[in-house]
Design a protein around this nucleic acid. Structure first.
Lengths: 103, 103
DNA sequence: CAAACAATTAAATAATTGTTTAATTATTGT
DNA sequence: ACAATAATTAAACAATTATTTAATTGTTTG
């Protein structure tokens, strides 16, 4: 199991995640959007899969990749813990802090 | 300016961030909590500083490092964009999705 | 000013990560 | 069975990142 942090640290992999946001997709389709080669893409997908950020679905000779929304919470939770605040209110918290500085 | 993603991808650096959560701290104090050497710590702090995740404050011969809360939002925002949901409701969204699967 | 301390920078090396080309596996349609 | 297509794995190489030891900078205190 690969670290979810290492997985999202790479620019290309975040692009892939953003691309998958709209719909599940095969590697062939993805390569049309990127500059890198099929094996490079495959390598990135393996890392994302191993980090449990995407799931794979075999359909005939195609493989569809889709986002695993649940996993993103692991990262969000880190920030929750880090700030000791419920994320529900994190944004407001920061914004209020900024507003205080301003006055 | 270093990428905030690269900065948080490293285990040691996330430990440092978690440590700074409670209060500002000097590198000397931090080394008591870690296994790595002072130069290694210094290198990590430079990266965190360059990513704007921590701020530095010189006081005599000591340097105090503290968290820059605002910056974490950059990462949180990525996930907002990624899911196309407001983070306020992300957790509920995922939980509901899970509940549906269960039924 | 000299000794002691805090922290950083420099230089070298070790380890990890990413990309490429070439070869391989698996699946479908004729 | 054979050709075509989708995707992966393998092997080699390039590039980046992390860690160490040693040397250096800046600051306080006797």
């Amino acid at each position: 199991m690969e670290s979810v942090w290492k997985a999202v640290a790479d620019d290309s992999r975040r692009e892939i995640l953003m691309l998958l946001r709209k719909r599940k997709m095969t590697p062939s389709e993805m390569t049309e959007h990127f500059h890198f080669t099929a094996p490079a893409l495959s390598s990135h997908l393996r890392i994302l899969k191993s980090a449990d950020l995407v799931t794979e679905e075999k359909l005939g000779k195609n493989r569809y990749y889709s986002l695993n929304e649940k996993k993103s919470l692991e990262i969000v939770n880190f920030f929750e813990k880090m700030w000791g605040y419920n994320l529900n209110s994190l944004k407001e918290y920061v914004e209020n802090k900024e507003r205080k500085k301003g006055t």
